[in-house]
Design a protein around this nucleic acid. Sequence first.
DNA 1: CTAGTTTAGTCAGATGATCTGACGAAAGGA
DNA 2: TCCTTTCGTCAGATCATCTGACTAAACTAG
Lengths: 152, 152
Amino acid sequence: MTVERHPTEARRSLGWLLRLPYAQLSERVYGGLAARGFPEIRAAHGAVFRHILPSGSRLTELAEAAGMTKQGMAYLVEGLTGAGYLESRPDPADGRARRIHLTRRGQAVMEALLVQSREAEEEFGRRIGAAKLARLRSLLEELAEELSPVRD
Amino acid sequence: MTVERHPTEARRSLGWLLRLPYAQLSERVYGGLAARGFPEIRAAHGAVFRHILPSGSRLTELAEAAGMTKQGMAYLVEGLTGAGYLESRPDPADGRARRIHLTRRGQAVMEALLVQSREAEEEFGRRIGAAKLARLRSLLEELAEELSPVRD
DNA sequence: CTAGTTTAGTCAGATGATCTGACGAAAGGA
DNA sequence: TCCTTTCGTCAGATCATCTGACTAAACTAG
């Protein structure tokens, strides 16, 4: 009568429990973005969109904020610039630097990202109920607060 | 008196809230593994360790369970085999197939993985309190339950 | 039993997402 | 005016995936 189960199946690790909803969320959000007319945007580009300021940001600032190397960030920015989502102009205050800005199309991505994210969250709410989702979010916020430095 | 903040900072997306603890957990777990004498093990190898059965598994089974292609899984298995964590022998029941097994060293990784994971979870518990962490885990379990198919 | 189909795994090649190291040019400080 | 630090780029490596094409073995209908 006992069914054979995978050894680790009984009690999933916290890592697994975090990763599963994260992966599904990402898939929805970025998949939805493609459907909304932004097919070049991939999850890795979130590192840019999450940190870029309306007034523009420097490459080094973005890299630092995202916790990656300048070269890694440069690779992402290059792709987004080529696809028309970003534009970079020399920084008038520093001859070595460039300021990276969202184009109008890039701003549209930001908005779509917020919409998709909210919709995905609502879908989760439909699964376990809004109250539980709110409780989950609040616990995650509390945990995030304690897990500083908020290197993302 | 108002401090300039990043626009999205006020209310982080659920994705961010899930990713931050996940990333820190992974870093602890796999970083700790290197310190425990398994320096070749990277986070991607979790796809193998999470799914391999004590009686051995086929490549195709592992790929299917992990939700990736056979080729992708083959790449991971190849690395682990070369480093002495896995070994594969022809499947007596099927001339096309091979059964992939953990070596003793591979089993040691499994154990270390459980230990590190538990320790990381306890550390989280120290941050927000055991009761809240338990509540968080339970909500995540509930969510995971609803987010089937449990493709991981 | 043979012919056709499906399955297990490999080979080759591509892309994406990172990293490290070395560098030139500009800025800032003493 | 040096010296040092910072900004960004160039070159190259590695890892983690993917798609497509293929062989050999196994299953399935006649």
